[in-house]
Design a protein around this nucleic acid. Structure first.
Lengths: 197, 197
DNA sequence: ATATGAAACGGACCCACGGTCCGTATCGTA
DNA sequence: TACGATACGGACCGTGGGTCCGTTTCATAT
């Protein structure tokens, strides 16, 4: 037997940490105020366990974010319309953006924690590449659509966590309004044909 | 005499600090790596002088940013076309965005430092309100243009410092390309009439 | 010139937080 | 039940933002 089962306490602790971090970020005022020690304490675990399991703060936040996002990502990669790849791009692009926006609305603090990690650019994260790739591909399928790479970046930028937080948290924009705004914006970008002068 | 002249050393030190911070940010690899102690040392000044003069790290960076941005801001507020307020909006909006982009290209590290301060949202900064207001006003002047408020946010989001850094610093996009991309994107947004269905 | 007090100075100091170390406890296997 | 591998936890460390307070320097009034 060269295989070795992973230890039970390790996986149990990993779950405990993710759960604790999730609730802490959800409750907190600002992600900045949630420390690694807080998370460890809330999970009933030593600090070293956090760093052993996730590398560093960014790693933990990314793991948590990725876990939460997984269902949506799956739906976008191989799910049914309107998110899945079989959807015609003119419907799929707005659907993808709306799904992402809703996710950020539902996980404001977590998204804020991820994008505001400080030193590490949010554009380095794996999941960003994924969304960007998906969106870019969809845009490329629109006949005569140019600059799909930059356009994908620009559209994603409109869903940045701190912008969402600013509009919803500070300026009291409603969820419905924000979704409508983003949809209208995306529509504007998509509607405009590349037959410019 | 109830008035009192400001002390000479105070103003002199303020300038020294701003100059030192400017060069340090310009040279550094990542804004994160420039510490307050570094700036104080480079300026030949005690740390307390930084905090007395600017409040905290964010305050210092904002002051520096504001100083550098002032000429462009002035041109946008009361200058001649194509930046000034007399320009027709369909030309002015792209001009404003291009000016802002160029500024961020020329001051990548500084802009990165400002937007990546961590706890403090870049949307809280005074200068953001200014740009947003200017852009929104210009958009409102376009007949039949809806959602100018959100659109202004979304367009500005396409010039975010970390996006610029990602495209130029990591992905080797050239200055010319990036400007062209942003211009094309803005054109797409502007070209599309609000006569949607 | 000089006395005077307000304003500014500087660097030692504090503390919160991310990250590490290592002796100890626990798990899976034989 | 013995044993090696793996994970544990909390004391510990370094760094960096921000503060305190005794000292110095400036502008003013005589």
């Amino acid at each position: 037997m060269t295989e070795r089962k992973p230890r039970a306490d390790a996986t149990r602790n990993r779950e405990a940490v993710l759960a604790a971090a999730d609730t802490l970020f959800a409750q907190c005022e600002s992600p900045q105020s949630v420390t690694m020690a807080d998370i460890a304490a809330a999970a009933g675990v030593g600090k070293a366990t956090l760093f052993r399991g996730f590398g560093d703060r960014t790693g933990l936040i990314q793991a948590l974010y990725e876990t939460r996002l997984a269902p949506i990502r799956l739906a976008a990669e191989e799910g049914a319309p309107p998110l899945g790849p079989t959807t015609p791009p003119l419907q799929r692009v707005p659907a993808l953006l709306d799904a992402l926006l809703c996710f950020k609305l539902d996980n404001r603090h977590l998204a804020l924690a991820l994008e505001g990690t400080g030193g590490d650019s949010p554009y380095a994260a794996e999941h960003y590449e994924l969304w960007h790739g998906t969106l870019r591909t969809a845009l490329e399928r629109i006949p005569g659509f140019a600059d799909s790479d930059f356009t994908a970046h620009a559209l994603l930028a409109a869903t940045r966590a701190d912008l969402v937080e600013h509009l919803v948290g500070q300026q009291r924009t409603s969820r419905k309004q924000l979704r409508a705004h983003l949809a209208a914006f995306a529509a504007r970008v998509l509607r405009s044909r590349a037959t410019d002068g």
